[in-house]
Amino acid sequence: MYAIEFENVSFSYSGTDVNDNLTKTEEVLSDFRMKVEKGAFVALLGRNGSGKSTCAKLINGLLVPTSGKVTVLGMDTQDKKSLFEIRKKAGMVFQNPDNQQVASIVEDDVAFGPENIGMPREEMKKRIDYALKVTGTEEFRKAQASRLSGGQKQRVAIAGAIAINPEILILDESTSMLDPKGRREVMSVIRTLNREEGMTVIDITHYMDEAAEADAIYVLNEGKIAKTGTPEEVFSDAETLERCGLELPRAALIAKKLKEGGLPIDGVNLDKGGLSEKLCELFRKV
C-alpha cells in the first residue's frame, strides 16, 4: 500500500456568476499520477499556478478530483466515510503561520487538533508533550504564540499538525515567509520526523536547496507532471528546469559555470560541501 496514490487525476476549478450559473472552468491538474511510498520525502516543484497547492488539497480531501482517484493509505478521498480518518492521517502546514493559529497560548494551540478528534485526555497529554519535544518548542509551551518569531510559530504549527499522530505531513510553502534561520529550524524538524519517526513528507517549495534533500522530486508544469526523479536526475535536466521556471541550487549553478569554463568537475553538485571538496582537490593537484 502506498502512502499516497494519484491515479489519472484531473481537477478543474469552476466559477459561478451571481445567479449560480457555471461561468468558466479552468483545469489546474490533468492526468496527474503520483505514487508516494510510506516514509518517503517528496518535494513538489513548479512555478506559481502550476497546480502544486491543488495537489496538496486533494491529498487530505479539502478538494476532490473532477476525474480520477486519490487514495491515502488505501482510503479513497471521495469516500465521505473515510474523510475524517484521512484528515487524521494527513496533517497540513500552510505558508503563513499567523493564519493557522487558533489559540493564544502555545500548548492550547497544539491541543486544538487532539481535542477535536476526541483523543482521551491521558493520550492527549502524551501526544502534546511529544509534539512539543520533537519540534523543539517545549521551552515556550506556556508562551503567547503571537510573540514568537516566524520560525518558532511555524514549528508550533507543525507541532499542532503532528499532535493528532498523522502518518503524512504536507507542507505547502511552509518555509517561504521565514528567514534563513527559521527555515533551517523548520527543515531540521521535518528531517527528524521523516528519518527518525518514519513520517511521509510532501514538501511544496520554491527553495531548490530544500528540494535537493528530498528522496524524490515531482516537477509540475501547467497541471501536468513535467519530470519526476531523484534530485540529481531532476537538476541535471536543464531543459525542464528552464521550461518549468525553476533554477539550479546555488552550488550546482556555480559548478555548472566552472565546468563550462573548463574545470573538470563531474556530477550535479547539489551541496556546497561536496563541491568545495572537489574544487580543493583540483587546486591541490595543479
Partner: peptide
Amino acid sequence: ERLEEVGTKIETDYSVADFTEKTIKAYG
C-alpha cells in the same frame, strides 16, 4: 574560504559571475 585554506586566493566580489570567472582564470 575553502580554496584559500588550500592555498588559492580568489580576489572576487562574490557574485556568481565574478567568482566563477576568477576561479576559472586561477585554475587556467
